[in-house]
Write a protein that binds this DNA or RNA. Structure first.
Length: 260
DNA sequence: TGCGCATGACCTCCACACGT
DNA sequence: ACGTGTGGAGGTCATGCGCA
């Protein structure tokens, strides 16, 4: 969908993008080949072509933030397919203390190789090195919760620069029905969790950690299972929302060359 | 060429919503 | 309960087009 996106170009908003689609300009290449576009002046068209050439360069350079900074958060899904192989899904659990100053108890990462947990008191400090391997992080509400907490906990500025898709704003942007928390959206699109963790929420994760610290057996495994389904279902949700977004654009006039 | 109109982008402010 | 970035609303600015 990245190569069908024009709203990252200066002067092109969602309405103009649909007008481009209706003119048969559905790919960056179509715009480069266009000699005249009814609602664009000659100078405007030349400038847009220059920006499309720049977009190709930025794509080749894997400059994900170039696109994310030019797209609103709700439209970040458009770059997902082209860059997902460089991404991981991330979710943290905390001890629930004092908002942003809370201690991280567990960080879960899910990528092409599967799930990995970083646990406080065990391997949490290796998270900082491992996360550098990724060019993009996908979270749910991470911009407001996970990222600030991690930044304070590790005292790192790194997270301010890394490419980030926050699915909370993607979901609510695609459909009003997808407003709400991760778990409620999961249910709406037919994603389910094993029954032993089906009714757990963030507060339960805090309680599980406390019980684990008191020596209660099985609590850490259950907490990890909870966290694992947070990131696993986040990846399924992202795939779903990408297809959902593409279908919306098709309804608005986007014509794809083949089923992609 | 210059004017006025129409359309869409952009800017600012504020309430909202989500995570644990 | 807290922190905080976002989208929406409303107003302003910029650009293209049609007409004389």
């Amino acid at each position: 969908m990245l190569f069908n996106t024009f709203i990252h170009l200066n002067g092109i908003g969602e309405k103009n993008e649909i007008l481009l689609y209706n003119e048969g300009i559905c790919y960056w290449d179509d715009l480069l080949k266009a000699e005249k576009v009814p609602f664009l002046g000659e100078k405007e068209l030349l400038r847009l072509k220059e920006e499309v050439r720049e977009s190709y360069t930025k794509f080749a350079e894997k400059d994900i933030n170039y696109f994310l900074h030019r797209l609103s958060k709700k439209n970040a899904w458009r770059i997902y397919k082209e860059f997902r192989k460089y991404a991981c899904f991330l979710d943290i659990e905390t001890d629930g203390h004092c908002g942003m100053d809370s201690d991280i108890t567990l960080i879960g990462i899910y990528d092409q190789n599967g799930y990995r947990a970083y646990i406080n008191g065990k391997n949490l400090m290796s998270f900082e090195d491992d996360i550098l391997k990724y060019d993009m992080i996908i979270t749910f509400n991470g911009g407001l919760f996970d990222f600030p907490v991690i930044t304070r906990y590790f005292r790192t500025r790194y997270f301010k620069d890394i490419a980030h898709i926050d699915m909370r704003f993607v979901c609510s942007g695609l459909d009003n029905n997808f407003r709400g928390g991760l778990k409620s959206i999961e249910r709406k699109i037919g994603l389910y969790r094993p029954k032993e963790i089906a009714n757990l929420d963030g507060y339960d994760a805090v309680k599980l950690w406390k019980r684990y610290r008191c020596g209660e057996k099985g609590c850490l495994d259950l907490l990890m299972e909870y966290n694992k389904y947070d990131v696993l279902n986040l990846s399924r949700l992202t795939d779903y929302m990408y297809e959902y977004g593409v279908n919306i654009m098709k309804d608005k006039g986007l014509k794809l060359k083949e089923e992609e």
